[in-house]
Structures are given as C-alpha cells and as structure tokens.
C-alpha cells in the first residue's frame, strides 16, 4: 500500500479521522523534534515544545490553506515555538529560578572520546547561542537539517542571497568563537 500524501491525511483528519492526524505525527515527529532540540538543547524542553507544536497543528489544521507544504508550515510553527521557549527561559532566568541545563549522556563512546566530543558540543552550543536569531535559524536549518537554501527561503520568507549571507556570517562567528575557546 502506498503512503498517503499529506493532503489526503489532512482531508481525512478534517472529516473527523483522528488516526490520520496520528499518521501525520508519526511522519514528522522526528524531523520536528531534532529541529526543536537543536534550538532549545535539552530534551525535556524539546519534548514540551514538540507536543505543543503538534497540539497547535491539531487545532489549526482547519485553517491550513495549503499555500506552502505541510512540512514548511510545521517547521515555521516549530521555529516560532522554539524561540518562544528560549525567550521564556530568559525571563525565568531573570527571576533566578532556573539555570540553563544541558543534558548530555554517555552512549557507546569510550570515556575519552565522549569527553572530547561533548566538549566540542558544549562549545558549539555556546557559539550558536551567540548568534542573532535569524542567523541561528538559518544555520540550524542549513547545517543540521541539510535544507536547501531555496526551501529555507520559502520557510523564512527571505531571499536566497540573504540567507547565504546569514549562513556565511554564522559560520564565521562560530569559527571565531571556537578559536577563542581552544
């Protein structure tokens, strides 16, 4: 049986079939999760944001006009929610209630390799945090999501040239930051 395309699933969902919505969640959950995780960093926040994203999609699908692909629409919501989460975190921190937490767990690597790669991860995370929001979005979408510039252009409604410049500046800044920490 061939996989149903998104528009068929949306139609079925709007006709009252919740299973169709579940299929959409299965289809996109990993991509959305990794995008969100790259931005908010820790798993618990990513988990909350991802759930909120899909709840939002569930309540807003009626208004989805199909002008962009579902995937682009989902990514847009996920980006907005993720950056909102960062803003909320900033405010909570200003009330001195929580610290920025990064959960890094060991897996199959040797202890030495694990320490080194986690050290790199930490530096990269710090470097990414120093980027302005737009550059951060472009960097994550391009590098981690491997999204072509023309797709990012539709998502962020920015010209390809502008995006390339953003990506380039992000790479330069991260490199400079990394150099200063090594």
């Amino acid at each position: 049986m061939s996989a149903q395309d998104d528009s068929e699933l949306i139609k079925q969902f709007l006709a009252g079939d919740e299973k169709a919505f579940n299929l959409l969640v299965y289809r996109y959950q990993e991509r959305v999760y990794w995008l969100v995780r790259r931005i908010v960093v820790d798993h618990d926040s990513a988990n909350d944001v991802v759930q909120d994203v899909f709840i939002k999609v569930h309540s807003s699908l009626k208004g989805f006009k199909g002008e962009s692909s579902l995937y682009t629409w989902l990514y847009r919501i996920a980006l907005n929610f993720s950056f909102n989460e960062l803003r909320k975190r900033k405010i909570r921190q200003s009330f001195s209630i929580e610290q920025d937490e990064i959960d890094i767990e060991s897996e199959d690597e040797s202890p030495e390799k694990f320490v080194i790669s986690n050290e790199y991860k930490k530096i990269i995370e710090e470097a990414i945090k120093t980027l302005p929001e737009k550059q951060r979005k472009v960097f994550i979408l391009r590098y981690y999501e491997e999204m072509p510039f023309n797709e990012i252009s539709k998502l962020l409604k920015t010209s390809v040239g502008g995006l390339k410049a953003n990506y380039f500046h992000a790479l330069k800044k991260i490199g400079k930051y990394v150099k200063s920490k090594m």
């Binding site: 999760y33 798993h43 790479l171 490199g175």
Partner: peptide, 19 residues
C-alpha cells in the same frame, strides 16, 4: 580558516541522546 574550523568541530561534536 574560521569557517573550516566550524565545520571541523561540528563533525566532532557528539550527538544528543534521547530516551
């Protein structure tokens, strides 16, 4: 060199774990 360093470090960073 800055951009190259970025790519080199990105390749070495560990992946995130999830439950």
């Amino acid at each position: 060199q800055d951009c190259k360093l970025t790519f080199e470090v990105l390749k070495k960073e560990s992946s995130y774990s999830i439950p």
